[in-house]
Write a protein that binds this DNA or RNA. Sequence first.
DNA 1: CTGTTAGCGCTTTCAT
DNA 2: ATGAAAGCGCTAACAG
Lengths: 341, 341
Amino acid sequence: MTTIDDVARDAGVSKSTVSNVFSKKRPISKEVSNRVLESARKLEYKPNYWARSLVSKETKIIGLSMQGENTKFGSFHLSLINGVHQTCYKTGYRLLINSVSNEYLNQVENQTSDPVDGEIILDPLVKDRRIEESVKKNRPVVVIGRPPKAYEARVSYVNNDNAGIARDVTRYLIGLGHRRILFLNATENSTVWEDRKLGYQAAHEEAGIPMDDKLVLANDRSSSALLYGLEQTARHLTQDSSITAVIADSDKTALGVYQAAGSRGCRIPEDLSVFAFSDDSSYSPEFQPPLSGVRMNSEALGEEAAKLLLEHCSGQSRSAKRVLIGAELVHRNSCGQASIR
Amino acid sequence: MTTIDDVARDAGVSKSTVSNVFSKKRPISKEVSNRVLESARKLEYKPNYWARSLVSKETKIIGLSMQGENTKFGSFHLSLINGVHQTCYKTGYRLLINSVSNEYLNQVENQTSDPVDGEIILDPLVKDRRIEESVKKNRPVVVIGRPPKAYEARVSYVNNDNAGIARDVTRYLIGLGHRRILFLNATENSTVWEDRKLGYQAAHEEAGIPMDDKLVLANDRSSSALLYGLEQTARHLTQDSSITAVIADSDKTALGVYQAAGSRGCRIPEDLSVFAFSDDSSYSPEFQPPLSGVRMNSEALGEEAAKLLLEHCSGQSRSAKRVLIGAELVHRNSCGQASIR
DNA sequence: CTGTTAGCGCTTTCAT
DNA sequence: ATGAAAGCGCTAACAG
């Protein structure tokens, strides 16, 4: 491996001159500059990333932090990543998928600081260690979704209006005559769970319909999203014949709802209406009829998050900002008038 | 920021002792070890990633290199990334999306070595600088897809049997009576383009049907995959009424084929059969009828690639290996008997 | 404009 | 089993 010393020797100049030819941080005569560049090319020299980072205190890498153990990216995350990457790409930042198993991380010998200038945090929890740590270390951070209340004013974030969306969806279903709507809400302890519940609640209140807390569930992640939808729907439909609609937190969950309905001869939308917080697989033939859902515009979510983070990394902005990304309800054929079963 | 010196001072030991408590590279008495760990916890010390990498010469980061400028991940890449990530996750490696615009990279002041221990290369070209460089620098590398001929024996790679798949698809269409099959093949100058053409050719030969080179196209990436399918199909269908089937290189391209067919009143599969190298969006309602395609198992592709790469990074294996991932044709309703138009 | 000299925070000989 | 000292490759402060 060629080092800066090799180049300096070859070009007959000092290390700092070589350094400055590359960094352009102080003027170097055309003549010397060319000589150095020539040597560098000849020796195939490239400044060492880590040595440079060590002293400059920046890595030009931003991290993407997934929530929980062993998580996989879904189609929602895919466009989100594309959005983030898009922004990184132009600005010379690299994107690190920053998630390593706790099993590995918990070994002392694997402990290290993170090799990133800042971090984008996915799927924030009501109490989220990742956010707490970033703030404590004073490291730039942007949350996708709403941060915990205590951090809302201190941390930048990009979000959909989840409460508003949930209210609109619920209002729509109530408008169709549904009175008891099962809500297969998001992951336990996530802030999005809270927000969506608020919206669900608001729609009930404005319609003067009593809301049953027991109808608002949480995904404990003990099994797959599909099973969450399948099992909970089956259980509640059996126990409670007054339920005429289900709101599902993702397309996979909605698929579980479809299966549960199907296996008990319950027709969609005649007997049961279904709405999902997703617009990714809604078209899939597994969904018969096509699933009504919400388009969240996740690519924009990612793009804006990256922009905010880079502003913070470059020190352009120290203040916590908030960006709201619009979302639209997409109506297909999975919802209908409530009917008594 | 807490450094190793702070901890050493606090625990009343030397730097090297602290270092070895963490790295476990030499025995430290239980007593001292505990004292150090206690100080470290108190001071919230974590070894600095960059400083460590600088001397250890490894970063525990692997890169994922996309082909070309400004590329976006598609659904094919999503499961591929999940596969790669899955493997990284367990082993403590992090995954870097290693693509920054040339515009940025070409500035001298942005030149650096790459901050990775090894790289996974996506969508290899017949002449691919990324591979050449990795080999020259003697850096661990695994290609997803087939490397250029000159590197096939020197570089590990994970691949589908693209020639075989293309042969099977073509054979199937020929079996349905198709004689002139338009092949909207992969990206110009990519190795997968070559391999698929070989398979297409083989099927023609074994059936004793003359193959028309002009029917095998390449995506020059000047526009989107959809437009590639749309424009080329429209053009060829107009010029040449003997074409009764199209093989498309991706689902987006196939969608273009559908649109071109639709706009000229050409029915699928009655007037035109369509097959795609993809099983991602085949179900989408935009595809009426559902698209027949190839399931490439890209998650396995990613997983195996990462495993191979980590073997190389850890020095367990220096020999170039090859892994083939199976693929299956998935028949739906976009293909039928050839008919004269 | 350029060279010299200190470090950045860590690991790794070489001692003891 | 522990400490002292010498770097890893680079940038930056200080001289000139």
